[in-house]
């Protein structure tokens, strides 16, 4: 329960910090921390414009996407306290529930019959497919190290093993930050600020969404960021009192948001053709973690 509350709290200001970082770096004052949240609230209160080509798929997709992210968030633990959902192998459920949401967001883009949205849908499907093995190898390696297969047990056991696991945690943080960037279609894979539909990924997919539906899609991005931030935070929250854990959690979230902001300010978007190679490289970073785990367990001959 506490993890759900913390992630929801973090999601409120996450995008705000990212925006603020970007504007400060580029020498502007920038909007307030809560501006993205206000934008979402404004969207939720607005009327909707539909494309005449769409069917019921388009109507249900935004809700399914939002709920899938919410469901995934419930699985993420907070330090030593479990998430609302926790069972053996829940990381598989986590990935697949997110995939379910993605499935619907992709077909809702196809539902509009627009060539631009189809293009975005195709890219989204490809990139998330390429990022999938990185996440699974990462979680599989930690499952192997700790002998557990649920997020909560993995993180709990991780902190009672040696300190080398923190080194692995750093590598895992890198992979997870990148996975979060890909999943949310941010730099260096995609630039949400671009104004050319041809080069967009996620933004072009939701081009025909408006009002409540768009609000759900937009807020889901914040939730997803906070969710990955929470997973990263779990690598560093050890067996500490709750107020300290909350502090670490918030620090990690803020740091994560600042990193995202800095990444978006100082990197340029890759060429589309290079994205696939880059994303797949993450899997090799995950494999490094796997070999690290093998080393730790003394399985190398």
């Amino acid at each position: 329960m506490i993890s759900l509350a913390m992630i929801l709290l973090a999601s409120l200001f996450f995008s705000g910090i990212v925006l603020r970082t970007k504007s400060l770096v580029s020498g502007r004052k920038g909007p307030g921390f809560l501006q993205p949240l206000k934008d979402v609230l404004r969207l939720l209160r607005k009327g909707t414009v539909f494309s005449e080509t769409t069917s019921f798929i388009f109507q249900i997709a935004s809700s399914i996407y939002f709920v899938s992210v919410l469901m995934a968030i419930m699985i993420v633990p907070f330090g030593l306290s479990k998430g609302l959902i926790s069972f053996d192998g829940d990381f598989v459920f986590f990935a697949y529930v997110l995939a379910l949401g993605k499935f619907f967001s992709i077909i809702s883009a196809m539902d509009t019959g627009s060539s631009f949205e189809g293009m975005g849908a195709s890219r989204e499907a490809l990139y998330s497919m390429l990022a999938e093995p990185a996440f699974f190898v990462l979680m599989g390696s930690f499952a192997m190290l700790t002998g557990h297969t649920s997020f909560h047990c993995i993180f709990t056991a991780l902190h009672f093993s040696s300190h080398v696991s923190y080194a692995l945690g750093v590598l895992a943080t890198f992979v997870l930050i990148m996975v979060a960037m890909i999943e949310n279609s941010r730099m260096p894979i995609d630039d949400p600020k671009t104004h050319l539909e041809l080069t967009m990924v996620h933004e072009v997919m939701i081009l025909d969404n408006s009002g409540f539906g768009l609000g759900l899609f937009t807020y889901a991005v914040n939730l997803k960021f906070a969710m990955y931030g929470a997973i990263i935070a779990n690598f560093f929250i050890g067996d500490v009192p709750w107020y300290f854990a909350v502090l670490v959690f918030m620090a990690v979230q803020v740091l994560f948001a600042v990193i995202v902001g800095l990444l978006e300010s100082f990197t340029a978007r890759f060429r589309m053709a290079h994205n696939a190679t880059f994303i797949f490289t993450l899997t090799s970073a995950s494999l490094l973690i796997f070999f690290g785990v093998l080393l730790l367990m003394g399985k190398f001959i």
Binding site: T53, I106, M110, D111, M129, L130, P133, V137, S141, T283
Partner: peptide, 30 residues
Amino acid sequence: MMLSLAGLAVIGGISLLAFTKSFGVIFLGS
């Protein structure tokens, strides 16, 4: 085992692509 795990994840990812494609192209749009 780890490589098979990654393989199964890729299979899942490509099947998402394959079936969003076929459902989208056959049934959606105009």
